[in-house]
Design a protein around this nucleic acid. Structure first.
Lengths: 201, 201, 201, 201
DNA sequence: CCATAACCGAGACGGTACGTCCGGTCTTATA
DNA sequence: TATAAGACCGGACGTACCGTCTCGGTTATGG
């Protein structure tokens, strides 16, 4: 769960001597990392800056996270857990379109900047890519698969083809890296294509 | 064309006073930037390192490129121009599969590291995203469209749907950012899905 | 006192949060600056070189001193405080001659190189000239005045004429800037002239 | 004579093939070096700046002078040759006072900045110290000796004591390096002291 | 009158140091 | 033991000049 942090939950939750970890401080750091990423951009984001923004010592950040990417990932994933929702009605066309439009919209605006930052890091740091997948992307993939397989509930043991997920989410990332807006229209086109592909199978 | 450089082609080609730019130096820098990116990774790549590797003064790098991303992009794009080829036989299934397998293979191995670096930068720097598209990606998109539209030559004025390109190339980028190998099998699955979608239209 | 440093004594001696300044580091820097000035000369002296010689980060030098001149002045003045001594017997001729011969000798040899450096800087930087006077020269002027006025103790309220000090010390600086050795003979001649002038008054 | 320049007069005056040295350029460089020294100070003076100010290529400066100190010295000495004058009436008190007041005044104002620069350089560069003496100071010393010995014309073979020159000019340099104004009053006091010393002998 | 040669402006080049920023570690006092 | 503060060593930033070089072009002498 907390493998992004230097000490995992089990050892932290055990009763230990000394002053306990400050939850308020931890949350100040996570909030500051989101705020700063959105304000100045990931390249300009520094651990020093996060600490200052959170009103915290640098050491305190280093004690719990190994890098700025780890801090931002935890902050982003925690935020997503509270936000992302899946509704399935049984009508694949409508469900998928709604799901994708929501996803495209979520990634427009401030949080999109943070997401691009994480994706950017994942591309050049394979350890982080794994953490990014486990901490955040896995859940989104599960969400998508839930939607995609809801229309195929008659066929037991149906498995969503991997390349379909790759192509649907990949299409978002393509637009992100090519300066194109994540419009509802774009979402709709991808949704329609995905439905076509799924019917084919 | 050369807008990645601080001075564009027209003014550089004009007869100007002073010692002319050294071609050997320029090529040493570009070669060094590829070599170093592959060796130490983009995050560890520094202008200072490029200069040292090329046996060149730092200022000389700064004189012609504004950032490490710009150097690497020019080196990568120049290299790609010499390497990427498109063959069209008229058989869409086979042509597309061959095209994608070649693309997947090219992005495995050293050059893939460089490509990820550029993609990584494009995600957090929209100016660079534009340059990346203009200098490199545009051509790849044209290549793909050439292949995709070759099977539809009967229908005049046929236009490849934008989301198709997004989904095909996006699928590659998805695998890149999630630590998955770019296998020929993965390429084949995407190719097959793309053919299905194209037949549908 | 410590106005050569970026933070003055009062605020530094107060209990402040954070890791305190390292005395060992400070002394390594001062020692290195003398060593290097004597070895390579003031023009070739660099902050970078001082830091390297002291085994210290560049920033640590910049944190406490604003320029190489300031470092060298503090090192030189601190050293002088431990070395310069005045003996007064009441016999003006002998006292002055001894005093000047000692001064001439001290400024021959390695420390002379450092002194010339400071003088050189003072001539083209009037802020530094003030600091040089306050931190170092003032004491030497007092020493000289002590010697000069010791023979005139009968006359209460006797004041050494300013131009006398200027001419005595100026004679040293003249020889320094004209490649002439600071010989005991030269010291003796100036001492004799000074005694004559003083008797006249 | 011209040993400050890289090529001496004999070889330059000899008839040689090729385009001859441009006098206008040479004078533009000398004038620019004085102007810039007075404007920005010796520490901020650069060969590059001199070339730009003179509207000249850097190489042209380096072709004729080995360092910025050499340029400034030639410019300053040439200027002084046209300015400094000695008048001797036979009245030592008055002659010396007038001579020193003029010297003090000359070194106040812009040219004083240049003189301090040369003195500053001479203190840390003994080769330059020699050139400074030969090119400029020697003449001033001769001037001073002319004045000092004019009152002693009855005594044949009279030699001005070296330490007297050192003390008189040294007194000026002392004031320069200690941020004190070169006032006529200061000149008068030194003149009076010098006369006393001379009468003594 | 044209070849040869040196000069000149411009500016690229390999370097060195600048003064700053930040990374990651450490050492204080305090909680 | 955690924390805020901040000093520490180290490495890279992007810039300024150094002194050298290589262009096109200019101005002399001499064959």
């Amino acid at each position: 769960m907390n493998f992004m942090q230097k000490q995992d939950a089990s050892s932290r939750n055990a009763v230990r001597p000394g002053r306990p970890r400050s939850v308020a401080t931890q949350e100040a750091i996570l909030a500051a990392s989101l705020r700063l990423t959105e304000r100045v951009g990931y390249a300009q984001l520094t651990i020093e800056g996060i600490a200052a923004e959170a009103g915290v010592g640098k050491q305190t950040v280093y004690r719990w996270w190994p890098s700025k990417a780890a801090v931002v990932l935890e902050a982003f994933a925690r935020d997503a857990r509270a936000v992302v929702k899946v509704r399935v009605t049984g009508n694949l066309e409508i469900d998928l379109e709604k799901f994708l439009i929501a996803a495209y919209r979520r990634l427009t605006g401030p949080r999109g900047v943070v997401f691009r930052s994480l994706l950017s890091e994942a591309l050049i740091n394979s350890d982080f890519a794994q953490q990014f997948y486990d901490e955040y992307l896995q859940s989104r993939v599960d969400d998508l698969k839930t939607v995609l397989s809801s229309g195929a509930n008659e066929a037991e043991g149906f498995e969503v083809p991997a390349e379909l997920v790759e192509m649907i989410y990949g299409a978002i990332w393509y637009r992100m890296a090519t300066n194109q807006k994540l419009t509802p229209a774009a979402a709709r086109q991808v949704a329609a294509a995905a439905v076509n592909l799924l019917r084919e199978t």
